[in-house]
Design a binder for these strands. Structure first.
Lengths: 216, 216
DNA sequence: AAACATACGTACCATCCTGTATGTAATTAA
DNA sequence: TTAATTACATACAGGATGGTACGTATGTTT
């Protein structure tokens, strides 16, 4: 029993006792670990098979920890939507900076949306939540509001990227919704039958389709 | 206590005692009632919130009846997929007869697919089943095989309708898959935000997009 | 160092879910 | 009419799930 002396800022034994963390940091990290685990499980097994118990233990924790940070399963689900929404916003902002310089914007836009959003497991998680929360009106409303936030990010980027004055407003947004619908459909298919080459061809095709729609 | 005499084929008291039915008919009707109820509930509340108990009582029966006709929940789910697949096949055959006479085939094809399949609550039910059964590999395999059957119906109609010799094979099937992906995406959207006029515009836009893809 | 707050685990409870056993009514076969 | 099947209901068992109460350990403040 040597070495029991307190070392307030110990890096003496590197891997034995983790460095002191502040509560705030612990909380933040734990919460995001739980959210990550939830996304992962929702993506893998779907809403019905994703219990709070699985989520917690998948994150290396227990239900006690989870319910300390999220009072109910609904709260966790909303937190997942919120986190995904935030991440999406960041990625889209990134895309915005990248895209504005190039010319074949439709193609780049479609691919950017796939890479940043629809091709990501997190997107599948949000779909699962969206469908799975239908039966609970209260949860549904909260989820829906998060979804709205997220959708607005996309709308604004689309508008700023692809606004051509020669095209009527409604046709432009219709084209956007059609693109989104297609990407959503591909995301669902990608879930049950993964095939990157196929997705690649579909994205290219979608891009040309949008291109021709946008320029009549 | 009069009129207790047996009347093998009684229409004497029209609404009192229902006419004798054969077991076969009873079975068939009960089973399809259960399947209908399952589709309805899957469409309304999603997979997670659709228990066999709800299904049975929604069909005016009990779990006992359900488990007499379907040994397990998995069996019922597969039966639903099978029934939807059959119905789809019939509707597509109908579409085939209607469509072949007209010329703007892409537009009619898109609308036909929406009306016959993707706009139907039964399609949502199959999506729920497809996503919900992911965590159970055994069920998953059975569901997947039914899905394949159903997909083949669509493929063959598409091929027979839209095969132009001037177009390479792969591009044609890619166009089909893109159409299907879009319709699937619209079906999911239609689930959380119903808006017939919007769907109408999207279908029109999709039709023109497919048209231009198919004729370069 | 002591009092307090926060993070997390364990244990328990009510609920719901699926499956199964068993009983009864309806239908069919003899 | 009687015996055998089939259709359906009722009742119970085992397991999973979500919520909550409570205990302990780890930070934080004074």
């Amino acid at each position: 029993m040597q070495d029991q002396a307190r070392m307030p800022d110990d890096k003496a034994r590197p891997s034995s006792r983790p460095p002191r963390r502040r509560q705030e940091d612990r909380s933040a990290e734990t919460q995001s670990r739980l959210i990550e685990a939830a996304i992962q499980l929702l993506h893998e097994n779907g809403f019905a098979a994703t219990s709070v118990d699985r989520i917690a233990s998948s994150a290396g924790l227990t239900r006690g920890a989870l319910s300390h940070h999220f009072q109910s399963k609904a709260d966790l689900v909303v937190a997942v939507m919120h986190a995904v929404s935030d991440e999406r916003h960041l990625r889209l902002a990134e895309c915005y900076r990248e895209l504005s310089r190039y010319h074949n914007r439709c193609e780049r836009m479609v691919r950017a949306l796939w890479q940043a959003i629809y091709g990501d497991p997190a997107y599948v998680a949000t779909i699962e939540i969206l469908l799975g929360s239908r039966s609970d009106p209260e949860l549904r409303a909260r989820v829906e509001s998060e979804r709205g936030r997220s959708a607005d990010s996309i709308y604004s980027v689309w508008d700023e990227m692809l606004s051509d004055d020669q095209m009527p407003e409604q046709r432009r947004t219709d084209a956007m919704h059609l693109t989104i619908a297609t990407l959503r459909g591909l995301a669902v298919l990608n879930l049950v039958a993964r095939d990157p080459e196929f997705i690649e061809r579909q994205l290219a095709l979608l891009a040309t389709a949008v291109e021709t729609i946008m320029r009549p």
